[in-house]
Structure formats: structure tokens, C-alpha cells
Amino acid sequence: MNKILWIGIGCGLLMQPASADELFFEATGKISTEATLYAHDGQFFNQDYRTNLSFSVEPELYWEWNDQQDNLTFKPFFRKDQRDSERTHTDIRELSWQHYNDNWELRSGVRSVFWGVTEFQNIVDIINQKDTVEGLDKAHKLGQPMVNLSLVNNWGIVDLYVLPGFRERTSAGINGRFRAGLVVDSDTTTYEALDNDKHIDLAARWSHSFDIYDMGAHWYRGTDRTPQYKAIAHNGINGLSAHYQQMEQLGLDGQAIMDSWLWKGEVIY
């Protein structure tokens, strides 16, 4: 894993929007191919290759009606990887209905949410599970089922979340290169919650901008998106088993602009 070269080719597609009097429809999409070259074979067994090809598609279908007050977005994602069967995966990035009103919005369905201010490693960004087989930069997320009511006030925006259902973190399979010596066995995942991945998580967040400050505070109670791994032997094969705990968390994030400086901070408790 000494030298890695990533080549990504992306392109956008646009189909003619078919707009009627009432309903607006738009279809766009992203196709990308990726070739990875390694200078050496991998460190572990089943990593004895130096090239890998991968291909992904992400269409986006969008409908809008009711004078732009309602919309529906469907964004599935599919990746085919030449070597790693765990990286070959499908996800629904978004399938959500959003309703807008003057001072509130209701967003229901599978969605993705970002919290935080810092450039990378956003410790307060905890709503979505990470899709780590897509890359280790944490920018890739699995769609999370939710009902999110957003209220706009003079003193800030309040977001209330009910999050039914949990997504396990993706991880490289036996033929993947970006992994530890032991492979995560998704059949052996355990949960602290009695209802396992059916636990309903709750969250609330306040965020506001005033003067030179942008502030946010949140409360979260539910399944921790970050698993704890332990070494196990399953069907005679050594591997890692993920365990997801319950947690309650308070967090703050903020930034201030002072001349050309942006001061940023995130704290969790």
C-alpha cells in the first residue's frame, strides 16, 4: 500500500425535464469510473493484486408541486467493485418528501444531514452512518430514515428528529485493500439495544447566526453510529464483530469570524 493512484472520471447527465402545469420533474445523474493502481501487493492474504476497477451510478429524480411547497427526491446509489464484494453495494441516498411552509419545514424519508463547522473530523456530525467503503474521508454517508421538523425562529432554527431504524457501518471485505488484518463479519453484529437495529433514536438541534458568530447545540439519544470491534472466530474463521452501544450526547459547535480568521470548534459530552 505504498503508492496509490486514484483516477476518477465523473460526468453529469441531464434528461429533458418534462414540466407540466402543476408538476415539475427533473432527472439528473452521476456516473463515475475509478481505476486504482498499487505499487505493491497488499499486506494481507487475498490482497495479491495491484490494479482495481470500480464503477458507480447515482441517478437523482426530483418532483416538485404545490407551487414549490412540496417536493420528492429519489437518489439511489450503486457501486460495482472488481475485487471487493463488500464494496459492491447499493444504497438509497435519498428518498424523501419535503414540505415547506413560511416558518417550518417537514422532511420525511431517507435523507442525509450534516452538522458541524470544522474542515474535517466533524465529531458533532452524528445523524448518518458513514459509508466507509466509499472512501475514508467520511464525506460519504448512508441514507438515514427520519422525520425531521425544522422550525425557523428569530432566535435560531430548531430541528427535531425522530430516527427509526439504524444502518450498520460499511467496511471492506476480504478482498478489499483498505482494511485491518481481520475482516469485519457483518453476520455477527450485536447491539446494546434490545430491539437491535430497530431502535428509534431521537435528536434535537438549535442553530443560529448572529453578528460574527454561527452557533449550534444538539442533544442525541440512541444508537452510537461508531461501532466497537472485537476479535471473534465465526465458523472457524477469525474476524471482527461490530457492537453498537446506546448513547446520550450533548454537543456544541461554533465559529467566529475575526478579520480574515475563521475560528471553529466542536465539543461533545
Binding site: 442525509s112 444531514v113 450534516f114 463547522v117 464525506a139 447566526s209 454561527d214 465559529q255 469570524i257 478579520d259 480574515s260 480568521w261 475563521l262
Partner: peptide
């Protein structure tokens, strides 16, 4: 004084504050 400016990046679903002193 300075204007308040924010940029929304749809791929990351992220709002970023711009240092408008610049």
C-alpha cells in the same frame, strides 16, 4: 462593516460561512 455570507454545498449538504472581510 463586513457583510454576512454563507455558501451551501449540495454534495456535502453543508453550509459554510465565508470570511467576507476578504
Amino acid at each position: 462593516g463586513a457583510d454576512d455570507q454563507w455558501l451551501y454545498l449540495p454534495a456535502l449538504k453543508r453550509v459554510k460561512r465565508i470570511a467576507s472581510r476578504n
